[in-house]
């Protein structure tokens, strides 16, 4: 258990109740180790996003247990869950979701600001370093909506790393980008994974992208139908 960043035991999720109850996930067991770089694939409606929301602690399972770094999350109240999410999980979304009223640097520092309550020099130093790592040091004072799509996604990745999370969840991180930018972003994620041993779970529709990950988990109709570890394509 020591190196397990994420563990799901018999996770079920259903919506509605009684006759209208609709079970989306039918008992998922999954374990991600520290430093893993995994892809989650599956057709639309297979439950990928629902699973990602549960893993991201944005939603609670109907049954089963979910551990983040060995901590059972079912026992936490909303405030503790929010805190755990802020500290341990980073998000990268398809549509970037930067906060347009803030600059690139401020967006990256935002998780630190939310957690600490007031700005300080250390958080901006950290934001600066992260922006440097994603190659946007010269864009730090640009407002978020003045950056290109690829740049915004890179800022979002830097932001996801601000709290040094053990797990980064990326929902179609390259889905909205042109091929060149998508490749850049993927390489960036990979580089972070290699350097910091951060665990990544990437939801994608793109089979080529999945092939470049260490592990491919396939979800169909709310159940894991295959889970393959392989040597990634270059």
């Amino acid at each position: 258990m020591a190196d397990s960043v994420l563990e799901l035991r018999a996770i079920r999720k259903s919506y509605g109740s009684g006759e209208t109850e609709n079970e989306i996930l039918h008992g998922i067991d999954l374990r991600l180790e520290r430093g893993e770089f995994a892809a989650l694939i599956g057709p639309s409606g297979s439950g990928k996003s629902t699973l990602l929301n549960l893993i991201g602690l944005l939603d609670r399972p109907s049954a089963g247990q979910l551990f983040i770094n060995g901590e059972e999350t079912g026992l936490l109240d909303d405030t503790d869950l929010t805190r755990l999410r802020g500290q341990q999980i980073g998000f990268v979304f398809q549509h970037h979701h930067l906060i347009s009223a803030f600059t690139a640097e401020e967006n990256v520092a935002m998780p630190l600001l939310v957690a600490r309550g007031r700005p300080d020099a250390a958080m901006f130093m950290k934001a600066g370093e992260l922006l440097d790592q994603v190659g946007l040091a010269d864009r730090k004072s640009y407002l978020a909506n003045r950056l290109s799509g690829g740049q915004q996604q890179r800022v979002a990745i830097a932001r996801a790393l601000a709290m040094d999370p053990s797990l980064v969840l990326a929902d179609e991180p390259t889905g909205n980008l042109d091929t060149h930018s998508a490749d850049d972003v993927f390489k960036l994620l990979r580089a972070v994974n290699t350097r910091l041993q951060t665990t990544f779970l990437i939801v994608t529709h793109d089979p080529r992208l999945a092939q470049r990950c260490d592990r491919i988990i396939e979800l169909t109709d709310g159940a894991i139908v295959s889970d393959i570890r392989h040597q990634p394509a270059a």
């Binding site: 991201g56 944005l58 909303d78 405030t79 929010t82 805190r83 999410r85 802020g86 500290q87 998000f91 979304f93 549509h95 979701h97 906060i99 347009s100 935002m110 998780p111 939310v114 957690a115 932001r159 709290m163």
Partner: peptide, 16 residues
């Protein structure tokens, strides 16, 4: 609402 959602996702509490 999207920005509120992302702030909540990155750890902002309901009270904040």
């Amino acid at each position: 609402s999207k920005e509120i959602g992302i702030l909540r996702a990155m750890g902002a509490t309901q009270k904040q």
